[in-house]
Structure formats: structure tokens, C-alpha cells
Nucleic acid binder design. Sequence first.
DNA 1: GTTTAGCACTCGCACATCCGGAGTGCTAAT
DNA 2: ATTAGCACTCCGGATGTGCGAGTGCTAAAC
Lengths: 347, 347
Amino acid sequence: MQERKRKILRAVTDDYIQTAEPVGSRTIARKYNLGVSPATIRNEMADLEEGGYLRQPHTSAGRIPSDKGYRYYVDSLMDVPDVPPDERVQIQREIYQPQRELGDVIQRAIRLLTMLTNYTSLAVMPGVRQGAVRHIQILPMDETHVLVLLVTEPGFVQHCIVEVSNPLTPSKTEHLSSVLNDHLRGRALGDLDRHLLSQLGEDLNDLRLFEQAVELLHTAMQEQTEEAVYLDGAVRILNQPEFRDVERAKLLMEALEERGRILSMLTAAAYDHEVTITIGEENVYAGMKDCSMVTATYGIGGQTIGLVGVLGPTRMEYARAVSVVEFVADNLSEMLTKMSRRWSRGR
Amino acid sequence: MQERKRKILRAVTDDYIQTAEPVGSRTIARKYNLGVSPATIRNEMADLEEGGYLRQPHTSAGRIPSDKGYRYYVDSLMDVPDVPPDERVQIQREIYQPQRELGDVIQRAIRLLTMLTNYTSLAVMPGVRQGAVRHIQILPMDETHVLVLLVTEPGFVQHCIVEVSNPLTPSKTEHLSSVLNDHLRGRALGDLDRHLLSQLGEDLNDLRLFEQAVELLHTAMQEQTEEAVYLDGAVRILNQPEFRDVERAKLLMEALEERGRILSMLTAAAYDHEVTITIGEENVYAGMKDCSMVTATYGIGGQTIGLVGVLGPTRMEYARAVSVVEFVADNLSEMLTKMSRRWSRGR
DNA sequence: GTTTAGCACTCGCACATCCGGAGTGCTAAT
DNA sequence: ATTAGCACTCCGGATGTGCGAGTGCTAAAC
């Protein structure tokens, strides 16, 4: 694409992102000094429309970027700014809090994301399957229930209550706990295989207990195997003029209430790349067709374990969103990696 | 108030609740056969308006109930229907699930409430202070952090990670756990007093350990002392015609996102009575001035520990809401009481 | 050949206007 | 005390109009 067309596409997109109004040739000529007259810009815009980068809401209105236009914009027009220093420290202060649970950290991280971007933000936290087991503990609750407590890398605590067919005495649960600990520590719960299980059986020396243990782990895993979805500032989306229509807003909010849907949307889109931008129609779900997402992955020691991002209208401040989301994700990764290392050293 | 006025107020309220349109004298004469002409009804309505029970959105429109009118309606006009059998079983099936955590139970209960009433529903779950301790366990995480696990009556599990100034070895945490267990079991965490603490000190036989224990409990309590607020179906409120205005909707949704505000609102209103109805202006918070709440308390063995309810427009189906909310709360109480008894027997 | 000025044309939007319907309050008759 | 009749009010939707912003085209200028 010729340089001038690029400049114009960029101007249109920037302006529309800022004002939410269709932008005309005169406006561009005035605000962005390209050194050409409105008429020339009009011609170029007609070409851009033909190419599918711009569209007109109605004849004789200004142009707005199409999804394809936004795509081109984020891929090769925008320049991502640095995160300003004050925001850097704000983010880092929030993330490097005195250590808490992973869930809390993520919650706080995305709350900040919401504040800074004014968009809805979301995160996926890894489920229990993924992380290596640090500690596992079985505690009796009442005749028919036990509590399974699981601490996984990197400091992710989960518990669930499991019904057992035969009562377990405190001494038995203690025994069970220690055996399970010996065998599973350092391993991911998803890695349970036959070999491991048979070895477990030998060490337990008690068939019924063994069966219960297997049953227990099975249930525990089923219960909380799912990745957790965090969401913050869902109402922010109502600030956007494109959602001044209640019906639309309702539709979107309803979609956001269904965590499962969000999850599949997020994972479908973006688990492999550092930063992913999903624009309008690229979204799998109807009802999100005029939203965009900017997401980034975070992980421990280079391995991706989760995802944070923001959700806004397609007319989103992509450049800023990218910079902030990326920065948050990077810091999250760094923090988690440190946290994990500290634990290894402590052993 | 004369019987006929009561009948008319009731007719107006019923009709307005159903249609969301101001209701006129002719409508009442036609739909609710009171045996009098529209003109008579008009006179009566004028009286009711003077008395503050009805109001007119504008001259020459029909009447709608004022807050005072609703108040009179719920206090002495409406008759609360039984919960229909199919809904009864649905509710009971949901609540008497194979035992899970209290949080899950409540979550499910209010989800159902949302489904059945089509209003936003909410619940308050007791914080950690209130319940008697069943089990307490300290586990080391890394050099500077331990995990405090707390199981309180009636099967409420909470954990939190606490930073400690001096590292605790596994053997020490074990010792600490067992001592704490001995002393705190059956007591509420909020009851920690000097006497108890000094006794603890004696048994621990280790000053530093004792100090850490106190510090630990202190932090643990501070962290999670707050009652938890559950919310479901917040978007449902957008279905109501009174919130077709986006600004209003946004305001309310924003209020709903602030859990603390909800909490104080709920507790302020309704902790003492079985079923409480809070109407429009009676709400403490602006932004809720055209909402009503129907809440009921639940508890264990007669002692109130929490609260469930629904939130809708003042033009709410009070009768139905009351019946369903009450039924849910009662079943919740019954279930929790049983659960608690079962545990006592298990000891 | 590209750029630009000029101009006719197109829409959407805000605003004013108008009309009908629903409902009221008052008065007088029952 | 109740009711029929009637004049009056006011909202809401339909209709019409003018204005402004913006376009596309054409012809002139560079």
C-alpha cells in the first residue's frame, strides 16, 4: 500500500478511535497535516473503501475503519507507546504485593488493568491439572466427607470437599496424605498414570484405602480441573457509546456472565502468542462481533500458564491496550517465576 | 382505610406490577370487577393520591403506586402464594446436593433464585469470625509464608496465606496446628480473648512460637473476616423496562459491582427479621432508590448466620418474591442445621 | 497524470408541528 | 353517594422541514 494511503488509514483510525464519529476528508486535512487537499483525501478514501479497509455507515457520512482496516492498523500502522513511568510503578506495586494466593494476584492485576484502560478486563488462571503438586493433604470432615487440600505450583491453593463411600479415620487420612505427598510432590496432577498409581497401591498396602485414594483424586480433579476465569469492570463497557443501546449491552453482559463461554473464547484465540489481538468478526461468538480483545499470556519460567487481557469495542485504543496488557503480563510472569524459584530454594 | 379503597389500591398495584404502565380508572373498572363505575374509582383514586399512596407520572396519565403505596400493599394487601410444587422440588433438589462447601451451596441457591424470579439475587455468607472452629491447620509454604487452613461450622472452608517474620519448620507448624486445634475447636475465632491466649501460651511452651501463632491468627482473621457477598443475574435487571435508560442501568450496575456497598446495604436493612422488604426510598443508597429488595435470613439451629434475597425494581412481584425467597432461606437453614448435626454426631 | 477547486446531491439528525388517545377533574343529574 | 357527560391536559408517535456534514464528479490547474 502506498505511503499516503497508509497515512490516511491511520489518521481515520486514530480519529475514529478518539471521537467515535465517522471522520470525513475535511477533518483529516485539517487535523492531520498531510499536505494535500480534502479532495485528494476523498479519492484515496474511496480507494481504501474499495479495498475493504474503510466503510461508510451511510452515504454521505464520513468513513470508519472496517475490521480489515483495524487489522491492518494494528499489524502495521500503530506504534505502541511505552507505559508511562507512574503507571509502571503502580502496576508493579500492585503485583509485587506481599505474597498472596495466585487468584488474588490476578484479581488485583486485572482490576488495575480495568482502571488504567477503562475497558473490561479478564484473565484465565490455570486449573489444578497443570501445576506441579507442592503439597496435598486429606482431612476428615464428617462421616462421609473429606477435605482435599491441594497446593500447586506456584502457590496456588485449592480445596474441595469430596464424598467418600467408606468413612476414613483421622489416622487413615494422615497416612493417606503422607503417601500421596511422597508420590505426587513435584508432579502435575494431570500426569497421574498407571505406573504412578500402581506404585501408590504398593505403598499404601491397603486395597480399600488405595481405591478410596484414587476415587478421591479423581473427584478432586474433576471438580476443579477447569481453568478459572476472572473478570473485572464489566460495566465499563457501558461507557462506550456503541453500547448506548440497551439491547446490545444486555446481550454482551449476558455473554460475559457465562464464564465457560468466555473461557473457550479466550483459549481459542490466543494461547500461543505473546500478545494477541482479536478484532470484531474474528471473535468466535456472536454478540462479541463488535468487540475486540487484546490478550497476553503469562507463565512461569517461560512456560505459559494463563492469560490476561482487556475487552473493548472494536473502536479500541489498541496501542495503549497492547502496551499496558503486555506490561502487566510480563510483570506477572516475572513475579510468578521469582515466587516459584524462592520456593524451590526453600526446599 | 375503607375496604373499597384497599381494593382499588390493590388493583392498581397488581396491574402496574404486571404491565409497567400507569393504570387508569377505566382499566380497573373493566379488569377488576369492583361493581362501581370508573367515575367512582376516579374519586377514590384522587383520595388515595392525597393520602400519598398513589401518584401520577403526569397530569392526565393513570396512577402508579408510590413507595408508601407499595409499603401498604406488602404489609396488608398482598397474599403470598405457596411455592408451586415443581419449584419446590427444584429448589430442594438444588440445595440438598451431595454435600459441598457452603459457598457452593449458596451460589447454587441464589442462581436458582435468579432463574425463578427473573430478578437479580444476592446472598451474604458469614465470615470466618462467626462460625465455631472445626479444624485449623498450619502448613509451611516457603521460607516466609505459611498457609492457614480453617474449617468452621457448618463446613465452611477457608484458607489464606500469611507472611511470617521467622521461618517455621514443618515440625513446628505441626505442633502449632495441634495445639491450636486443641484450644480452638468448637470456639468461634471471634471469641479469642486474653484468657484463651494465655492458656495457649502455656501449652506452646515456646515464646517465639506463641507470638507467631498470635500474629498468624490475627492476620488470618483480618484477611477474611468480612462476610462474603454473592451475586447472581445482575444483568437481569436490564430486562426491566425501568432500566431501559442506559445511564440508570449503568449507575445501578456500578453500585452492584461494589461488594462492600451491597454488604452494608443488606446488613443495615435486614438482619433481624425473618423476611424483610425494603422499598425504593427506604434503601440507604442513592442509585437504589427505585429498587426494592426482598430478603430472608438463614441460620443454623435458630441462629441467624446469613441472608439471601432478590433485588428488583420497586414495581416488583412482591408476593411471589417473598414466597420463593422465604422458601429458599428456610430450606437453606434446614439443610445447614442437618449438616451441622451430622458432623456433631460424627465426632 | 495527479491534484485541487467547485458544485450538485444525499442523508441523517434535530427540531417543530400536529394529531389521537387515554385519562383526568368537575359538574350536574340520578 | 354514585354516575354520566364533557371539557381539558398531556404524552407519544407520525410527519415535515431545514441544516450541516460529507460525498462524488467534473473540469481546471499544476
